[in-house]
Computed example of a mutant assay.
Amino acid sequence: MGRFIKGIMGGFSGKVGNIVGGNWRGISYMRSLSERRNYTPTEKQLMQRARFAYAVSFLQPIHPVVRVGYRNQASQQSPLNAALAHVLKKVVEGEYPDYRINYASLEMAKGLLPGPQHPAVQLQDQTLTFTWRDGAAILKDYGDNQVLLLAIGDGIYPSYSIGEAVRNDGQATLAIPDAQTGTVLHTYLAFLAVNGNSVSNSYYVGEVSL
């Protein structure tokens, strides 16, 4: 798009041939019309688009989690795009149109903070209880780290928690929505610095059957 102060006959508004003129906040501009593309995508392009759409739909419900968990991985892109690149590369499996999620390969956070030691999870009365046992040295320097929790699975809306507990607590709980008996949840745990500038790698705690 080009801008001009005064043309041969002053500024103009509208379309002349493939040129469009107008005025925005007192600035006259000209731009050319974009060319219409009239083509049929190849089968490979359709497959790539479907895989991309599948990955995006998977990430949308956990956007608040990856926005925090990938904030340090996004020097040239948004946290969501960084997470999307990870999901497309390591998490989405299968062939078109039967894609599936490899939950054990999912990382909801990537960073340099110490991760949890001896993490575990138990389910009781629709509540997941996460536990960990960090050493005294880690707790001394990182005890105020906030806790990130995630539970996700096929056919159930994900449940997550950000900052409702701290590393010093040694445990944190996460309520889950109602789901059919036998539904498998995949659980994850990570830590976030109080200032929000750094996170730990997430840890895949394991599966829980409802």
Rank of each mutant, 00 (worst) to 15 (best):
L189T: 07
Y99W: 06
S34Y: 06
H118F: 09
V16G: 09
L80Y: 14
G111V: 03
Y70E: 09
M1A: 12
G14I: 14
L113A: 11
S32R: 12
L149H: 01
S209V: 15
G22S: 11
R31G: 15
R71Y: 09
F58L: 15
F58D: 12
L123K: 00
E93P: 01
T129R: 13
V91K: 04
Y96L: 01
G115P: 13
A190L: 10
G182K: 05
A179E: 15
F130E: 11
L112N: 15
K44G: 02
D154C: 03
Q73D: 01
N201P: 03
Y160E: 11
L84A: 05
G26P: 10
L185V: 08
N168K: 10
T40C: 07
G10Y: 11
N23M: 15
Y157K: 14
L139D: 01
S105Y: 05
F12S: 13
S75H: 07
Y157G: 08
V205I: 04
I19N: 05
V91Q: 12
R31K: 10
S198C: 02
G21L: 12
L149K: 01
K140S: 14
Q117C: 11
P64N: 09
D141E: 13
A120S: 15
D141I: 00
Y39P: 01
T181Q: 13
S159I: 12
